[in-house]
Each structure stands twice: as C-alpha cells, then as structure tokens.
Design a protein around this nucleic acid. Sequence first.
DNA 1: GGGAACAAACGTCAATTTGA
DNA 2: TCAAATTGACGTTTGTTCCC
Length: 268
Amino acid sequence: MWWHQHNLCFRHPIEEDYSSEDLEQKVATIAETDESAESEGVIDPHKRREILSRRPSYRKILNELSSDVPGIPKIEEEKSEEEGTPPNIAMAVPTSIYQTSTGQYIAIAQGGAIQISNPGSDGVQGLQALAMTNSGAPPPGATIVQYAAQSADGTQQFFVPGSQVVVQAATGDMPTYQIRAPTTALPQGVVMAASPGSLHSPQQLAEEATRKRELRLMKNREAAKECRRRKKEYVKCLESRVAVLEVQNKKLIEELETLKDICSPKTD
DNA sequence: GGGAACAAACGTCAATTTGA
DNA sequence: TCAAATTGACGTTTGTTCCC
C-alpha cells in the first residue's frame, strides 16, 4: 500500500507545487523500484479492495512514521504554538476565549470547563483559578450554556447565565467575542437553560434538534479546518521525501556509472 | 477604479474509519 | 455495535494579480 512506502520524512523545502496524489505517486515511483514485479499482471480482488479502501488518517500516518523514525514530529491535538499557557498556571488548555465588556476573560477549555479571569495585564495569560465549571455531564437542574448558530445581525451567540449573551463576530481567522445583554429576544431555536430531560413539546424537541445540528456543524467546521492543516503538513512531508529520494537516486545512478567504467575498461 | 482569472480557504454533506 | 472523528468532494467566499 502506498502509505507503507513512507519510511522517512525529511524537511527540505522545495519549490514545486504537487498535489498530494502526485507526490504519493512520485514517492512511490522513486522508492519502489525493487517492487516492480508486483505491479505487473492482474490485481487480485482482495488487493483491489485494499487499494480502494479509505486510507488511514493523516494523523495516524505521520504518527506511525514518527514512532518508526526518531526525529519526525508527531501531529498533536493542538498546535503547541497556539498554546500560550505559562507553565506556572495549572489549568486546562483553553479552546475558546471570550472577553466581556468589562474586560473579564472567559475561557472554555477542552472538556467544557469554564474559566473566568479578572482584567489582568496579560489578558488571557492572567486567567485565574477555576471559578465555575460545567465539565462532564451536567447534574439535573444545572445551568447549561446555550449555543445559537446565528442571530439576526449575522453574529453567533452563546447564551450564558444572567440573561447575557456571548456574541461572536463574523467569520475570520481570529474570531472575537463579547458578552453583552441580548439586543433582541431569543432567536428561534434557542431555549435558555434547557436540559434534555425537560424537553416535552414537539417544538422543544425541534429546537433541541436544531441546537444539536448547529453544534454538529460547528464541530465539523473545526474538524475540517484541522484536517486541512494536517493535510498541508502531510504534503510538506511528502515534498521533503521526494527531494531526498531524488538526490539519493541521482547519487546511485552516478555510482552505477562509475562502477560500470571500472568494471568494463575500454579496449583500445 | 473595476472586471476577469485564478488560487486558497472555507462550510457542508456524506462515506468511511476509529476507538470504546 | 455505535458515537465520534476523519476526510474526499463540491460549491461558495475571499484575497491577489493582471489587464484594460
């Protein structure tokens, strides 16, 4: 299988812009010269099935490579450069950070823990000890932060306790958030502090379904971004591999020519 | 300035894989 | 077995460059 060819991954930037399929083909062509016999003749159905089957994820491929070959960085869940947490602060890595109108910071960490910080000189880095949490399954009657996809003004809103909303500005690389009083009544499809067990009417069920869909879309949106990042990393890895193999190939050809000259001297 | 062409990034859906 | 994660495919949006 093609991903078995990738035994190494080097970092040598090259100029050409290949698609990942082109690169895979190129790497395979360079690396498999001693396996040409296998490619001849009819592919049996089992092999064909293997070829057609979905490839392992980029994360898995590169992590396998990194465990085989020291020096190849693993693909982490979160990029380290995005984690600005100082080592002396014991807290979960925040995945979403919001700023209130008074300058307070709210971080929603992986696992759903909510952290609130007072206005500090370092902004996010000034996050203090956990003040409120909703991590894990909420107990009966617990307050639930609600997420609504889009309000009338095109922003995204998270409803939090205290009749306030966290408003996300329009799309962008660095989304910004604000906590403010809702400018309008709750948009359709949003129920304050609704817990799944308390849903009864068809309307509530529909609202819950809508909310779940929005949540799923949001998660998939983030997953797609992450997937694209991994794919770019993977393509870079293949580009490096191509460059190294091409150099190796050239050296071997030159070596072969030299040996030929030595072994077959001219008979003039 | 503005319109066309192009590339890159994005959001969504659906099929597939993964891991508990 | 099933929910969650992953990723290919496709259409859309956004940014950049070139030409008029």
